[in-house]
């Protein structure tokens, strides 16, 4: 009884800052400009299906590369002495304390014309700019998400107390997830991408200025995507791995 009372502020918080906005997005997505019921926003939202697909492709490739890189690294981690483990974990974590925009700027400088990469490769006679393309966006994504892949795999492998992670997720992973899934990809594509690397987050951002209905519809479709993936994970994944 006592513990339920303690959760009341949290429930109110969730209600005000998570549930009500989602319901509002849901309602707005089914309306036209005059406020009547309409499916037009969805019709328009699916006009951007190529952007949806491109975003999905980038997400898929980034995840795959992250997995390929993270799995052996996590395995090596479990084999290390405890002190070395902690050092490597710190090295993985420290960049995440910095503002992510700064880290993307750092990538811009690394990849741009006359940047370190260009200078190094020009010794071999290769010149050019390595920014403004889809590959650069994927590099940025992999860089950002790698710690999020390494650490959970490592914890599963080394059977650390899962209550800790669950506690962390209960506390804040909802907003963190929104940040990672929407805001972060948006800035990666803006800074590292070229003209063809617009992602679904950019479209939502732009269209929302003048047409909140279509913006809401796209957001809702995106949420359904995420929901479907969550359900799939619950169906097929074993519980340890999801935690």
């Amino acid at each position: 009884m006592k513990s339920r009372k303690l959760s009341i502020p949290y429930i109110i918080w969730m209600l005000v800052f998570t549930m009500i906005p989602i319901v509002m997005i849901g309602v707005t997505a089914f309306r036209d400009k005059n406020g009547g019921f309409s499916l037009e926003p969805f019709q328009k939202a699916f006009g951007y299906s190529n952007v949806f697909l491109k975003s999905l492709l980038i997400a898929f490739l980034s995840t795959l590369i992250c997995l390929v890189l993270a799995y052996p690294l996590a395995y090596l981690l479990t084999k290390m002495r405890h002190s070395t483990q902690q050092t490597v974990q710190m090295i993985l974590m420290i960049p995440m304390w910095m503002n992510f925009l700064l880290r993307i700027y750092a990538w811009v400088i690394l990849l741009q014309k006359n940047g370190p990469l260009d200078t190094a490769l020009s010794i071999l006679g290769i010149h050019g700019s390595y920014i403004g393309n889809t590959a650069a966006v994927i590099v940025g994504m992999v860089y950002e998400y790698l710690p999020f892949m390494v650490l959970p795999i490592f914890t599963v492998m080394s059977k650390i107390d899962h209550n800790l992670i669950e506690a962390a997720q209960d506390l804040g992973s909802n907003s963190a997830a929104v940040f990672r899934k929407v805001i972060f990809p948006l800035s990666v594509s803006q800074y590292l991408g070229g003209t063809d690397d617009i992602m679904i987050g950019d479209v939502i951002d732009k269209i929302f200025w003048t047409d909140q209905n279509v913006g809401s519809a796209i957001s809702l479709v995106l949420m359904i995507f995420i929901f479907v993936f969550l359900v799939l994970m619950n169906l097929f994944g074993d519980e340890e791995a999801i935690a």
């Binding site: 190529n50 617009i198 479209v203 269209i207 200025w209 279509v214």
Partner: peptide
């Protein structure tokens, strides 16, 4: 017209 312009501009970037 303003909304139409914005929509067209997003379309250019999306296609």
């Amino acid at each position: 017209v303003y909304a139409y312009m914005q929509e067209k501009f997003v379309d250019i970037q999306a296609n």
